[in-house]
Nucleic acid binder design. Structure first.
Length: 921
RNA sequence: GCGGGUGUGUUGAAAUUGGUAGACAAGCUAGACUUAGGAUCUAGUGCCUCCGGCGUAUGGGUUCGAGUCCCUUCACCCGCACCA
């Protein structure tokens, strides 16, 4: 019997599915392990060979943990709401639900071929009403909550209302959009509409007018992380700024907690750093400047992290979008300012980003008074100041801030250095080092001390206060499109009224046309009778991240109709032990999920503060494209190494026609009628194609389909090869060269069990030498699993199989544990051989062999002395020593300073003068 | 500009974390067997002036010993980008 992977894989995949081998239940007597993949958005193109990389890695861990006796939760589902399906619907009239279903089915059938150990009974789609009921439910909870800054958690909004009725806004400690001030009497006198408006200022899910990223082409608003370089991430359409009424989530209230608990997570430093930057904590000072506009006078608060430089302030700057801009403009300057503001407005976000070098601005006519020096400085308006950060107004210190410096140079404003000996003739001196000068009470201080001294001074003299600012903005939660979760909210005039929980799920209504209306209203306004008890329902829908923010909780208890997740299930599974996915979600999904989870934690619905304890980012698998070179104006194609001699045009060719860079000429001629009579100019014999590493995509003809690999080599080979390609976290190009190597390994493995139809395995006692091979491998696999060094594990397997082949070992005592150990990587062949060894049950729940140290040491060891040059000699460490004996032997050596014994290797350092290295192989 | 990371044969990469650099594969070369293939097996394969020496981007340092630690320079990748 040969290694017939097609038959074997089909057989076991069917059996696993029929017997529901991977079905998981809460079982209190077993330790739990929750391994999760970032669920995919099922696109129309299907899976290519890069998608399963992370799934394979997590599947290996899931299967390994099962062997180690863990109760493993390993689910999969689909992030099914989203733009592409809707775009397609607009073009074709096809309902996005239908497209989505087709794509999901395709994904599922592709995944089934790879032999994943998912518990498919827990599968769901975010567009299932049973699922999005809980997305809507969470939204209602957020609508009904505010964030108490004093106790640092979300509380019911009713408590805040009670507080307002009793004390007004005094001591309310609620995170808010803007600071409001009113008395209890005022609150009690207001009507419902006014109260509703005021409460919006505090709710965690709230409605507000904000400047948003509007994408006219897509007819929708996009979150900051959905925009790149002024273009939409999906589709690449221009994005402009627009003021609109939007639902938002008060993520900013959680900024501090999101930042602080990062430390407790087992994520990569770079990912944590990305989140830290995104949250962008900066602690500084708010300082009040008096500003005189003609004969009017008012206070303007600015934010600075460099209060120490206040003696160097030579002007102030306002953001053009800030309300202050017009308010502080004098009548004589009004026309000029108006013109500047309209100039800024016309600029798209894109231009503003790509053009940060050009300095623009206009003088408002007002003057501010420096509270420290009493000096009068001009107030300017410029686009380099952002309305949405700090207070929208800054003090400018051109000597010590490069942006202020550029501005001062452009408009010829004075530059006053306040750090001793710094040269500001060419550029500003931004570094926080040196001794202060020209700075009154701070003179002579070190800059770092001066920063603190200035803060103290400002607070002591009531000129302002310490303030921590975050860059993290509230998340815009409305999208003007159809294919998303409807908001369970209706309107009575301007008052937003939440639907009762019993109304959930509020199902997405059927409509005929998926475009926005002519007046720019979202598609849902086309729905007939889109009302609740006679009141119009919200017509925008929730964004993509809504459905993916709590999905990991739903997997714990996916069929529960009473709760998002039962207390029992949540307290057993708690949170995700290992989360595997791409780094592209660093500042989107991974922030929103953490926020969403913390919110549910505050309300007591979940028992863990953080959703994902350990996170691993798999790298991207790029494509390797192949090219032919057409001699310009002819139908001749010149081989890659000769292309310099001609004027050529580079054309992508489908990589299925290329093997080891050699083109299958006949296939190429058949590829397209255009090439039917193509002529080739090869160097000698074969036509060699050029190649490049690019994104894997249809248009580059470099897509490798996993189905094809499964067909040609089998799922086990695919799994092994994807892991063998290199470290998991690294991006690497797919190159089918070399896949034969791992395939050959599986066949060699098979041959340890079978020769032809003869089953070779004998029940004999293993020799120490054979046991050593086994135990080396056990040690390797156990240590590699934690670090995801699956490529080296596979190498170790190859070595072991080669050694056993050389030893002619066909002993059950060795081969049976080997099959178990291989099963996470290549489950089908392992299952087949496990059964061949006479087992009835499945290898999935076999027990991973224990590491027996007694046979790790060989007869002799190399005793290398690398002291004073390179003397080396061999010493006999007697026969078959156990590590403990080696250790004793080594300890008996004179002046042993350090002993490190692990696995099969013993390391010794002897001093003084002599450093001895003992390697036991 | 700021932050994070990487740099080892022809290629993917490994190196017990400071201890014989290049494991394991791929490719290439030669040979064997041939029912001629994208099969299997064997041997070789870092470089050189080859009884020796040199080699982990570059230059320096620490150390008995450095791919690994520290500093310099260079190159590439990723993230953020007027955040005051």
């Amino acid at each position: 019997m040969d290694y017939n992977f097609r038959e074997i894989e089909k057989k076991w995949q069917r059996q696993w599915a029929e017997k529901k081998v991977f079905k998981t239940e809460v079982s209190a007597d077993k330790p739990k392990f929750y391994v999760l993949d970032m669920f995919p958005y099922p696109s129309g193109a299907g899976l290519h060979v890069g998608h399963p990389l992370g799934y394979i890695a997590s599947d290996i861990v899931a299967r390994y943990k099962r062997l180690k006796g863990f109760n493993v939760l390993h689910p999969m589902g689909y992030d099914a709401f989203g733009l592409p399906a809707e775009q397609y619907a607009i073009k074709t009239g096809q309902h996005p639900g239908i497209t989505t279903k087709q794509n999901v089915d395709r994904y599922r059938s592709q995944m089934d071929k790879i032999g994943f150990s998912y518990d498919w009974d827990r599968e769901f789609r975010t567009c299932d009403p049973d699922y999005y009921k809980w997305t809507q439910w969470a939204f209602l909870k957020m609508f009904g909550s505010y964030y108490c800054t004093k106790c640092g958690k979300a509380l019911p909004i009713e408590e805040l209302e009670a507080h307002f009725a009793k004390n007004g806004s005094k001591d309310c400690n609620a995170a808010c959009t803007e600071e409001l001030s009113f008395t209890a009497q005022e609150w009690n006198s207001w009507d419902e509409a006014r109260k509703s408006e005021v409460l919006m200022n505090y709710r965690i899910a709230y409605r507000g007018k904000t400047s948003v990223n509007w994408c006219p082409e897509l007819g929708t608003v996009l979150a900051n992380d959905e925009v790149k370089d002024g273009l939409s991430v999906r589709g690449g359409f221009p994005v402009v700024q627009k003021k609109m009424d939007q639902w938002l989530l008060r993520v900013s209230a959680y900024a501090e907690r999101l930042l602080d608990s990062l430390d407790s997570l087992d994520w990569t430093d770079s990912l944590k750093e990305m989140q830290r930057n995104w949250i962008g904590r900066s602690s500084g000072t708010e300082v009040v400047f008096k500003v005189i506009t003609g004969d009017r006078e008012r206070d303007v608060t600015i934010f600075t992290t460099r209060a120490d430089t206040m003696f160097g302030v030579t002007f102030m700057v306002l953001a053009p979008e800030s309300e202050l801009a017009l308010e502080l403009t004098t009548p004589t300057k009004m026309a000029e300012v108006q013109e500047y503001l309209s100039y800024v407005q016309k600029k798209t976000e894109r231009e503003r980003i790509s053009d940060t070098k050009t300095v623009t601005g206009v003088f408002s006519g007002s003057y501010g008074i420096n509270p420290l020096t009493g000096e009068k400085v001009p107030v300017w308006i410029s686009e380099y100041v952002l309305a949405s950060y700090g207070t929208g107004a800054i003090m400018a210190v051109p000597a010590h801030d490069s942006r202020d410096y550029a501005f001062a140079r452009k408009f010829d404003l004075p530059i006053v250095p306040i750090i001793e000996g710094c040269d500001v003739s060419e550029q500003s001196f931004d570094a926080k080092e040196g001794k202060m000068c020209n700075s009154g009470f701070m003179n002579g201080m070190d800059v770092k001390d001066a920063i603190e001294a200035a803060k103290d001074y400002v607070e002591a003299h009531h000129l302002g206060r310490r303030k921590v600012n975050y860059r993290l903005r509230d998340a815009i939660f409305s999208r003007q499109r159809y294919w998303g979760e409807p908001f369970p909210v209706c309107f009575d005039g301007d008052i937003a009224i939440p639907l009762p929980d019993e109304a959930l799920p509020l199902e997405l209504p059927e409509i005929e046309e998926f475009k926005p209306t002519e007046t720019g209203e979202p598609p849902l306004s086309r729905a007939k009778d889109w009302t609740w008890e006679g009141k119009p329902l919200e017509t925008s829908t929730m964004p993509g991240f809504a459905g993916s923010s709590a999905y990991y909780l739903r997997y714990m208890d996916p069929h529960n109709s009473q709760a998002l997740v039962s207390k029992e299930a949540n307290e057993y599974w708690r949170n995700v032990d290992l989360y595997v996915g791409g780094t592209e979600h660093a500042t989107g999904h991974l922030i929103y999920s953490r926020f969403w989870n913390k919110f549910l934690y505050d309300l007591g619905y979940v028992c863990e503060d953080e959703p994902f304890r350990k996170l691993v980012n798999q790298g991207m698998i790029q494509g390797r494209s192949s090219f032919v070179y057409r001699v310009v104006g002819t139908n001749q194609f010149v081989s890659s190494e000769l292309k310099e001699q001609y004027q050529t045009q580079e054309l992508h060719v489908d990589i299925s026609m290329v093997r080891n860079d050699r083109l299958d000429k006949d296939a190429f001629r058949k590829w397209s009628p255009e090439y039917a009579d193509a002529q080739f100019i090869p160097a000698d014999g074969d036509y060699i194609c050029g190649s490049a590493v690019e994104k894997m995509s249809k248009s580059m003809y470099n897509v490798v389909n996993p189905d094809q690999i499964c067909e040609d080599y089998g799922a086990d080979t695919l799994r092994l090869y994807e892991m063998f390609l290199g470290p998991l976290e690294q991006s690497k190009p797919w190159d089918t060269k070399g896949i034969d190597g791992v395939h050959r390994f599986l066949r060699k493995f098979w041959k340890l069990f079978y020769e032809g139809d003869t089953f070779l395995v004998q029940d004999e006692e293993a020799t120490p030498q054979e046991l050593k091979v086994l135990h080396k491998l056990i040690a390797k696999e156990e240590s590699d699993i934690d670090t995801f060094s699956f490529n080296t594990t596979i190498s170790a397997f190859m070595i072991a199989v080669n050694e056993l082949t050389d030893l002619g070992c066909h002993k059950k005592a060795i081969l049976e544990p080997l099959a178990v150990m291989l099963s996470p990587f290549a489950p089908h062949i392992a299952e087949e051989l496990w059964h061949a060894l006479g087992h009835q049950d499945t290898v999935t729940y076999a027990s991973f062999p224990e590491y027996v140290q007694a046979y790790t040491v060989e007869d002799t060891a190399t005793y290398a002395v690398s002291f004073n040059g390179k003397t080396r000699f061999t010493v006999d460490l007697s026969k078959s020593l156990a590590p403990a004996e080696v250790e004793a032997h080594v300890r008996a050596l004179p002046q042993t300073e350090k002993y490190v014994g692990e696995g099969s290797i013993v390391k010794v350092i002897v001093v003084p003068g002599k450093i001895v290295n003992i390697v036991v192989k």
